[in-house]
Design a protein around this nucleic acid. Sequence first.
RNA 1: GGGCGGUUAGCUCAGUUGGUUAGAGCACUCGGUUCACAUCCGAGAGGUCGAAGGUUCGAGUCCUUUACCGCCCA
Length: 883
Amino acid sequence: MPKAYEPGKVEQKWYDFWMEKGYFKPRIEPDKEPFVIIMPPPNVTGAPHLGHALESALQDIMTRWHRMKGEPTLWLPGVDHASIAAQVVVERELAKEGLDRHQLGREKFLERMRQWVKDCRHTITEQRMKLGASCDWTRERYTMDEQSSRAVRTAFARLYEKGLIYRGERIINRCPRCGTALSDLEVDHQDVNGHLWYVRYPMVEDKEKFVTVATTRPETILGDTAVAVNPEDKRFKGMVGKKVILPAVNREIPIVADEAVDPKFGTGAVKITPGHDPVDFEVAQRQGLPLINILNPDATMNENAGPYNGMDRYDCRKAILEDLEKSGQLVKIEDYSHAVGHCQRCQTVVEPIASQQWFVKAAPLAGPALAAVRDGQIKITPQRFTKVYINWMENIRDWCISRQLWWGHRIPVWHCRDCKELIVAVETPQSCSSCGSTNIEQDPDVLDTWFSSGLWPHSTLGWPDDTEDLRYFYPTSVMETAYDLIFFWVARMIMMGIEDAGDIPFRTIYFHGLIRDDKGEKMSKTKGNVVDPLDLLEKYGTDALRFALLMGTSPGNDSRLSTDKTEAGRNFANKLWNATRFVVRSLEPGVNIDREINRDRLPVEDRWILSRLNRTFASVTGLMEDFQFGEAQRQIHDFLWGEYCDWYIELAKIRLQANDTTPLPTLVHVLEKSLRLLHPFMPFLTEELWQNLKKHITWIDTESIMVAAYPESDKAMLDPAAESELEAVTEIIRAIRNVRAQYKVASSRWIEVKIYTGSSRQATISRHTDSIKSLARANPVTFLEGEPGDKAGDNTLVLPLAQATVVIPMASMFDLEAEKERVEKELKQTQNEATRLESRLKDKAFLTRAPEAVIEKERQKLYTLNDKLEKLKQQSARLQEVR
RNA sequence: GGGCGGUUAGCUCAGUUGGUUAGAGCACUCGGUUCACAUCCGAGAGGUCGAAGGUUCGAGUCCUUUACCGCCCA
C-alpha cells in the first residue's frame, strides 16, 4: 500500500465494480419489507451544486445502510424538466446569440430545449456517479419521459372529471418577462421603498368636492371601477352611492361600502381596481362591479388605458403623475415601504392580472393530506416542520397550474372551434367528443412544473399502470429533500399521492438544511460564490467531500462548507488508510487470523477496545435511526481516531514489538467491523481498505463491503470493568506526559514513576506496566500500596488521579544543574532584551518620530517579553526549591 | 402582523428524554526525525452556554420575559 490515500486512483474502479455486480438494483423479495427512496429529481438547469452533493450523500448513506442491513433497497434516480426554470436558462443562452424564442418558433425552440436537456442530463448523471451514489440506474426516470407524461395526463383528466381541476377567471400573478401566469408560491415578496400618492377624484354632483384616495400604483387608476369605504367609517357617511369622476380617462365610477376596506389606510377611501388586485377583485365580485384590464401580456398599457395606450407600465406611471400634478389632483406624496412581488425565476416585478387560467381545487385534496400528517402516518423530521406544513395546508388556496410557456407538459385539453366544447383526454383525440368536428386544437399552455413533480413517487414506480414496482415499493420509506421545498413539492406529493395512488407517498419526510459558503452566504451564480462539487472531489476525494458536507450538521439546519472541513475529511481518510496499512503490514508474515475471537482469553486492552467498538455500534445505529447522520459520523470518527488509532494500536504495538502476535485478531476484527460501520459515509475508501484486508483474511468471503452485513452491537462484548481499568491506565499515562511537557523533559529521557493505589487496583493496573513504560517513557515504574503521604519526600511531584496517585521524583526528570543553568541563561537574555525595549519606549525622539504602528509593535513585543520573563522566574524559583 | 430557527472556545458548529470536570474541527502556544500516518504524534491555553427571572437536589438542556441576527408565511 502507498504511504498516502489517493482517492483519484481507486474511486472509478470501485464504482465500475459495483455497477458490474448489479448491487444497486434491488431484488424484489415479497416476504421482506423494502427500503425505498425516490431521488428528488435535479433540475436540468445546469451543473449540479453542493446542495445536490449533500442530498446525494444523505440518500446514499441511508441507502447503503439499509442495503447492508439486508433489506431489499431501492434508490430510484431521475431528472426534472423544470419547465419555467429551464426555459429561462435556455432563453438566456439564446439572448447571447441575439435570439429569442419567438424568432425560433415553438417547434424549433423545443428542439433546442431537448438538446439542452440531453447535455445537462449527462452532466448530472456523471456527477451523481462520481459522488458514489448507489442508485438503481436501470430505473432512471425523467419527468417528461413517456411514462411520466402519461401519468401527468391521466392525473389531470381524473382530477378534471372529479371537478378538482377547473378553468376560470381569477387574479393571478403574471411575469411580464417570462410572459406567463405564476402560482402564488412562485412569487418572491420583497420590501421596496416606494411612494404613496394621494389623488383627488372629483364628485360628479359637485365638482368642487373631492374624495381623496391613496395608491402605490397610480397607473392602475385607469382600471378603477369604484371607490370603496368601510361601511362603519363615519367620515364618508352620505357619500356611499354617489359617483366620482376618474382622472385621466374621465369615467364615472361609484362610491361603494365594503368591509374589506381598512379605515386606517391612506384617507380611508380606496380605489378599486378589480382587474389588477386580488382584494379588489373580491370586492368587485361582492359589489357586482365591472372589471377592466389595462395591461397587455408584456406589461405595456392596452387600449383601455386611453391616452396612455402602448406605454410601458412605469412610463405610464410617470406620465399619469405628471398629468395629475398639472390638473392639481395630485395632493400629497408620502414615502412608503411595501412588499412587491417578483418572479422567482427572473426577478422581474410581477403584475396581478385577472385572466382565464386552469386551477386545482386545493381544499378537497388538502383534507386527507392534512390527516396523514396529523395521524402520524407521515412523520416529518425534524418535527418542527410539521407545524409549518399544517399551517400551510389549513390555509391552502387554489393552485394555478397553467403556464403560458412552451417547455413543459402540454395541458391535455382540446378546444373545439366549432362548438366551443372542451375535450379533456389522456390520448390525443381525433375529433370533438360533443359535435364530432375534427376542427379541434390543443390548449397552447403547459403545466406548472410542480404538477409532474407532485406525481413523482408514484409515477416513477409505474402509475397509472398497476406494476410490480408500484405494488412492492409504494409507499416509499423516506423522502429526503431541502426544507425550502416543503410547499412547492412535499405538500403536493402528499396530496397527489393520496389522490392518485390511494396511499401516502412516503412514511417519513426528512428535511436537510441549505449549504452556504464559508461566510454563511447563500451560494448563487450572480454572487459568484458557487463552489463546484467536482472541483472539491478532484482535489480532496469523494469521501472527504461527503465527510465535510455532513460534518457538524444537524437535521434541518443550514451549514457552511469550508476547505477546512474538506481537509479534515481528507485527513481522516488518510488516517484510516494508514491504520489499515499498519494492520495489513503486521499481518504480512502469514499469520492466520481466526474468524471468531474468544473474548474471555483476551488481554484487558483487547476486551476494552471490543467493548468500546460495540458501544459505538449501538450508539451510531440509534443516531442513524433518528436521522442524526452528522453526529453518527462524528462518533465513528472519534472512535476510530481517538480510541482505535491513538490508544489501541499504540498499545498493540508494544506486544507486537515483542514478537507477540496475539493482538492481531483484535486489530483485524475491530478494523474490519469499523470499516463496515463507516462504509455508508465513506464508500470508496472503506471498500478499498476492506479489499486490502480481505487479501490477507481467508474468512472474509463477501465480495464487496457494500453487500457485507452492517455491524450490530453484541452485548456480550460490553465490558465495564475493562473500560474502567483502561481509563485508569490512560489517565496515568496522560498525567505523566503532561508533567513531562510542563517541565520540558527531553523525549529521550526516561523518568522514574511511583504509582500508589489500593491493593485491588494495584493488581489490575500493574498488568499495564509495559504500556505505561512505553507510552509515557517512564522507567523504572514501581507500584506501592495506599497513599503516598509523607513518604513522597520533598523533591517529588505528587499527582492525585481518580484511581491512583502518581509520584515522580524531580531529579529523574532532568539534570538539575544543567536545567538551572539553561533557565538562568534564558532569563538573563530575556531580561536584557526587555530592558533595551523599555528604554527605547521611554525615548521621546522615538515616541514622537516613529509611526504609531511601529511603536505599537514594540509595545506588544515588550508585553510578550514580560510575560515570558514572569514564567521563567517562576520556573527558576521552582528549581531553587528542589535544591 | 403570524410562525420558525439561531445566539455555546478566536472562527465554524455538535451537544436527542435535565445528571460527574460542556465537546469536535480549524486557528493558536510549547515540544517532537521512536520502523501506520508531518494529510502526523504528545501536551497546553481558550467558554459566567445572548440577558433577566423561575422550576429542580441538580439547567447549555424545561418554563416565563426580553434583546439581537436569520428564514418562512401573510
